[in-house]
Design a protein around this nucleic acid. Structure first.
Length: 242
DNA sequence: AAGAACATCAACCGCAGAGTC
DNA sequence: CGACTCTGCGGTTGATGTTCT
């Protein structure tokens, strides 16, 4: 059966493989994807890593006061339905929100300490972030369009000549753009192009030249260092290892 | 300076629901 | 309709970093 699936923290190389694979082939089947992507990870692990860390447009860094208030508000309405709450926070994942709740807000709420009233008067309730910033759906469209841009950059919205046997890539109007992994030859070609000198062996970090050190500011004006992965005019933000 | 205690957050686990055959 | 697979969710853990004594 499954022999020694890797666990624990993801390396830069693994992140790179996953990003590059999804960039090229999209998300088609999490359970099958790891072996095609050259990863010794479970599909679950890959999905989690992508959703919580590698996916474009994820917002990292501290929660703003506004977000904190909204989180308190939405938790009072929705309870521990983290995924539902996360929909109200563009760029935040359910895991982020869950973690933030447990580490910052849970104790405060249990102690009855609030920075501001959030539920006693609906008029005083913080305006939902999806109203203040942009509708959650609009945000998601941003995410989608990022994915679509990537896909279109590879001309995979139509049947590609280098993907025979009727393989057709497509970009769906849902969260995860999907397509097939292509043929074995395609896969070999994909990795040959990606790592022409190493044949999937990572003896050094020269692949990191695909990442450029990049610093930006989040909504709190906190400086965030990241690696940005450039490929065909598409940029992917890969937060640096702590 | 060193160890203990605490905080943070990435990652794992088990389960449930949806979809497919 | 039941078995099976896949995906997503929420709870929890554990490694690492930070602060305190």
């Amino acid at each position: 059966m499954e022999t020694s699936l890797k666990r624990g923290s993801w390396s830069v190389e693994e992140d790179h493989k996953l990003i590059t694979y999804i960039n090229k082939y999209g998300i088609w089947n999490w359970s099958q994807m790891p072996k095609f992507a050259g990863l010794s990870r479970s599909g679950k692990s890959c999905r989690l890593r992508w959703m919580n860390y590698l996916k474009p447009n994820l917002k990292k860094g501290k929660f703003s006061k506004e977000e904190e208030e909204s989180l308190l508000h939405y938790h009072s309405l929705l309870g521990n339905r983290w995924s539902a709450i996360a929909l109200k926070f563009p760029g935040r994942t359910d895991n982020d929100i869950k973690n933030y709740w447990h580490t910052h807000l849970k104790k405060r709420v249990s102690e009855g300490i609030r920075v501001h009233q959030t539920t006693t008067d609906q008029n005083d309730a913080p305006a939902p972030l999806d109203q203040k910033l942009q509708p959650a759906h609009d945000h998601m469209n941003v995410s989608y369009s990022a994915g679509h841009d990537i896909l279109s950059s590879h001309d995979i919205t139509s049947t590609s000549s280098d993907h025979p046997a009727g393989v057709q890539f497509r970009a769906d109007d849902n969260d995860d753009y999907t397509c097939s992994p292509g043929t074995i030859d395609d896969l070999q070609c994909f990795w040959d192009q990606l790592y022409p000198f190493e044949n999937l062996e990572f003896g050094n970090n020269h692949n990191m030249d695909m990442f450029s050190d990049y610093v930006f500011q989040d909504s709190n004006n906190d400086l965030i260092s990241s690696y940005t992965f450039y490929d065909n005019n598409c940029s992917w933000s890969l937060p640096s290892d702590p």
